[in-house]
Design a protein around this nucleic acid. Structure first.
Length: 444
RNA sequence: GGUCCCUUCGUCUAUCGGUUAGGACACCAGAUUUUCAAUCUGGGGAGAGGGGUUCGACUCCCCUAGGGACUACCA
């Protein structure tokens, strides 16, 4: 079976960790099976959808490397939905309702206060053709509801196994609004059918929808795709993540300087039985993807894990990949520099600080002037790869200092800091002239 | 109020009736002539609670507690 999946975001905001996880899971699954990944912009809500958010979705997906093979806008496909709606109307599966929003709201509250489930009572189904004609004559425009069969709809879910939803416990869903706008449900089903979507992979917040959607798939004479509902993410305290989602947009992560692979590795591995580690590419990530590895319990999203993964990505980043970015920051000090300092990076932009350690200016920290003076006198004239160990050995012999007492003052004098990259390669990069100046107490 | 799902080390998870309950990350300790990083070695650390079923339960059933989702003319 050819795998064809879709990511269908609505351009009503920037995408965040919650919905990018859906995009990622679909992408990984598609690539694992040589399938097709469709980007379907769900802009049926004309009022809330904006071009800027639509562009933002493309920017974010592209930044993460989640490229798409096909792309659609639902707002350009209304005629297709209209045709499907007419078919449903002809079958009597889609029926007009004239209650106002306030009315519906009031009824719901009454039901709730009586301890009853807030389900639509299907009053509109009792309307006679004459009544409907009268209502229309009054200028009232209906919204349209899909008449549920009222049965247990079953499917075998890729992550949840055997599932069923009892559609008798649900209201008939509104498919078309009073103003004629299509609500998400119908376009989603029609497009899945029309585009030949083989697998619908999404968060478990859609399991109830699946029940009604399968009924619509079948009403339209189609076969429902295979469904997979992964568990949602929660915060570090186990509370719903949705409350903090605003601060976790992909855009923010990019602005803060996180590596895209850290973000994707994190979201791909979280909640799975695979180790939470940074992968070198999305392809590698997709090779280990398997629905059977997904847990059913909500997983905790911990930003600290993202930071760790980000560091991992940096620590393994080859020079060729870093070079253009180093150039952009004006700190491309060569491959030896990159290899010497990359394991000390948490964020890529940390390189500017580390570059300063080499190129200056560094204000030395010197406590024991005599000791440093002795060290300066012993500084070799030839700076080869062994300069650090040769020099330190000589200083050790001359002063009797050892261990921390030996290394710490030298590091402080040379870098002005208590910690940093390994001194061996660093000293070579600093060079004799600057090293000597710093040991002499000068800022260099 | 109703429906559905979930609950194993701090975290993500393995286990699919009989295990010293395994791994990864984190943490702690040690090693690698200082620190940071990396690496290696070792260590502590778990079945939400209560009832059943069974020779035997983390595993099956019920109840309770906690968490999540859904219950829109949002998606």
């Amino acid at each position: 079976m050819t795998v064809k999946v879709r990511f269908a975001p609505s351009p009503t905001g920037r995408i965040h960790v919650g919905n990018i996880r859906a995009a990622l899971t679909n992408w990984l699954f598609a690539h694992r099976h040589g399938g097709v990944f469709v980007l379907r912009i769900d802009d049926t809500d004309l009022e809330r959808s904006t071009q800027a958010f639509e562009d933002g979705i493309e920017t974010d997906l592209t930044w993460l490397g989640l490229t798409w093979n096909e792309r659609y806008n639902q707002s350009k496909r209304f005629d297709i939905y209209q045709t499907a709606a007419e078919r449903l109307k002809a079958m009597g599966k889609l029926y007009p309702c004239y209650e106002t929003g306030e009315e519906l709201d009031r009824r719901r509250k009454v039901q709730l206060s009586r301890g009853q489930p807030p389900i639509y009572d299907r009053a509109a189904l009792a309307l006679t053709p004459d009544q409907i004609a009268a209502l229309n004559a009054e200028g009232r425009r209906p919204h349209w509801r899909f008449k549920l069969d009222g049965r247990r709809v079953k499917w075998t879910d890729l992550v949840r196994g055997e599932c069923d939803v009892d559609t008798t416990s649900m209201s008939d869903p509104v498919l078309i609004r009073e103003d004629g706008a299509f609500l998400y449900t119908l376009p989603s089903v029609v497009d899945d059918l029309e585009m030949g979507i083989s697998h619908v992979v999404r968060g478990e917040d859609h399991v109830t929808n699946t029940g009604v959607q399968i009924e619509i798939f079948e009403a339209l004479g189609g076969t429902a795709p295979i469904f997979g509902h992964f568990s949602l993410l929660v915060g570090t305290d186990g509370e719903a993540l949705s409350k903090r989602l605003g601060s976790m947009s992909i855009m923010d992560m990019r602005d803060k300087g996180f590596e895209p692979l850290a973000v994707t590795s994190h979201l791909a591995r979280l909640g799975t039985s695979d180790p939470l580690e940074a992968m070198a590419s999305l392809e590698l990530l997709s090779e280990s993807f398997d629905f059977s590895k997904l847990g059913r319990a909500p997983a905790r999203y911990d930003p600290a894990d993202l930071e760790r993964l980000n560091a991992q990505v940096l620590h393994a980043m080859p020079y060729g990949q870093a070079k253009p970015r180093l150039e952009a920051l004006g700190v491309d000090l060569g491959e030896a520099f990159w290899l010497a300092i990359r394991t000390n990076l948490a964020m890529f932009t940390d390189v500017t600080e580390l570059a300063r350690l080499v190129a200056g200016p560094v204000t030395p920290m010197i406590e024991d002037a005599d000791f440093i003076a002795q060290a300066l006198a012993l500084l070799p004239t030839e700076f080869d790869d062994n300069v650090w160990s040769d020099w330190v050995g000589a200083v050790k012999t001359a002063t009797g200092a050892k261990g921390k007492g030996l290394f710490q003052p030298l590091r402080r004098a040379l870098t002005g800091m208590d910690h940093g990259p390994e001194m061996g390669p660093l000293l070579v990069l600093i060079g004799r002239e600057r090293a000597a100046a710093r040991l002499a107490g000068q800022t260099a």
